[in-house]
């Protein structure tokens, strides 16, 4: 697999050099480190601070969602690896305005361990921390184990809701509660046609046969939940939407937000074809798409594939979704 690279071992550092220069309007390094970035306008006194973070290789997740009205700081790990506690603590300190800090991140063993350690240290420093783990990947565990699921592209919506709640001056408890609600109402499922390749090896971790696809794909290049024969775009979308409808208790007239997300190498053309079917399926149930995003929002290096996320809105979530924000990859006004 060919890539634009210099030293493969410095890929994260070099990317972050670029990020920090490119997005200096939104982001500033905390204490000079590129592994902990704060929003230039975001943290403010008496506002709950929102800290997000995770491994790299998911760009524009997570650093593209830092800025006014969204996250106040992001901790940046190595490729597909949680950041260690130290940058997370730095983020907590930078994001803290005295009203507490909310940690929102995907439910992965590594992230949980590092963010929990960071939360303890932050608490010791007098910063109140609450945590919401994102668990939107409906393929990753049965419904009985909803808390055991992973967080994938639905992060996008959950961060957005959390950021808006913080920006509106809600209390730490209220911010955590509505973020938790958003997480519970966010449903994602992904399908990969080809795996991505780590810059260090430039090889696929595993191969997907020429007629096959991985269903229930996460965002770390690990194999999906099942391998199936590749089917048409509509059939794939249908199987995702059937799973979503199975869990989402939506009534006619309900409203949703939709994210059709490329895992990296799948182009917009195909995402629109998927969205077309998502829209048809929702319309058939009289469910309204109040807002949609189609593109590269939470990727897995250069993986070929896509995920579909549905956020089941209610009045409160809808208001928070439309609350203004200004970040490198999401602007709402």
């Amino acid at each position: 697999v060919k890539k634009f690279l210099n030293n493969p071992n410095e890929v994260v550092e070099e990317m972050l050099d670029g990020v920090v220069k490119a997005h200096e309007k939104y982001l500033k390094p905390i204490n000079g480190s590129h592994r902990a970035l704060a929003a230039r306008s975001g943290p403010r006194p008496e506002k709950v601070g929102l800290v997000i973070g995770g491994g790299t290789g998911h760009e524009p997740c997570f650093l593209g969602y830092v800025g006014k009205g969204l996250a106040d700081a992001v901790a940046v790990g190595n490729i597909f690896s949680s950041p260690p506690p130290d940058p997370i603590v730095q983020c907590a300190e930078a994001a803290s305005g005295g009203a507490g800090v909310l940690f929102v991140y995907g439910n992965y063993a590594g992230d949980v361990m590092n963010f929990e350690m960071a939360a303890e240290i932050a608490e010791e420093k007098g910063i109140r921390v609450q945590t919401v783990l994102t668990t939107d990947d409906i393929a990753s565990s049965p419904i009985e184990d909803r808390e055991g699921r992973r967080g994938v592209a639905g992060n996008f919506f959950i961060f957005k809701i959390a950021g808006a709640a913080c920006d509106r001056g809600l209390s730490l408890e209220a911010c955590a509660a509505v973020t938790r609600k958003a997480n519970l109402r966010t449903y994602t499922m992904g399908v990969a046609l080809e795996p991505g390749a780590m810059p260090q090896t430039r090889r696929h971790n595993f191969e997907i046969g020429p007629e096959d696809m991985e269903v229930g794909m996460g965002i770390h290049g690990e194999p999906g939940v099942t391998r199936e024969r590749i089917r048409s775009a509509d059939e794939i979308t249908d199987s995702v939407m059937d799973r979503v409808f199975n869990e989402m208790k939506a009534a006619p007239g309900d409203r949703v937000a939709v994210l059709v997300n490329s895992f990296g190498a799948t182009p917009l053309m195909e995402l629109y074809i998927l969205f077309r079917r998502v829209q048809q399926r929702l319309a058939a149930k009289d469910i309204l798409i109040e807002a949609n995003w189609i593109g590269h929002y939470c990727t897995s290096l250069d993986m070929v594939g896509a995920s579909i996320t549905i956020l089941h809105l209610d009045q409160e979530l809808s208001e928070l979704l439309h609350h203004p924000c200004e970040t490198a990859f999401l602007k709402i006004n």
């Binding site: 491994g55 190595n78 597909f80 690896s81 949680s82 260690p84 506690p85 130290d86 590594g110 590092n114």
Partner: peptide
């Protein structure tokens, strides 16, 4: 513990 992150950093 402090510089690596991931699962292995803490474990």
């Amino acid at each position: 513990m402090t510089e690596i992150g991931g699962s292995m950093g803490p474990l």
